[in-house]
Amino acid sequence: MRVGDRLPPLEIPITRTLIVAGAIASRDYQDVHHDAELARQKGSPDIFMNILTTNGLVGRYITDHFGPGAVLRKVAIRLGAPNYPGDTMTLTGTVTDLDGATAQVRVVGANGLGHHVTGTVTLTLPEEAGS
């Protein structure tokens, strides 16, 4: 592995079920993540994914690729365009730093509206991959 390496993209269909299941699994009961009518009253066209779900999906994208031996050390994300039902988010990643067994990956999750999430993940690589 080298700096500049790209991770294969991961496409995530943004279903209503994913948004609601993610909100509930993260114990986030804000109405904008499960009640379309109340979301509209607050000026949003529909329910949208909560940040904890986005965080979970970014973590999954990294460990899916690097395997169960990889350990997440730091996940820093910024949200942009919301994930609304019916959209698809494509996660892509680029290795931006490599120091021994520690790697840094820049992650972008793009949907039909633009960048839903941009962020950086720091992880300790499993032994086989680091050597």
């Binding site: 050390r73 996940v75 994300i77």
Partner: peptide, 8 residues
């Protein structure tokens, strides 16, 4: 919510 930075 706009940003989340976590260290483990």
């Amino acid at each position: 919510a706009t940003d989340c930075e976590q260290e483990y």
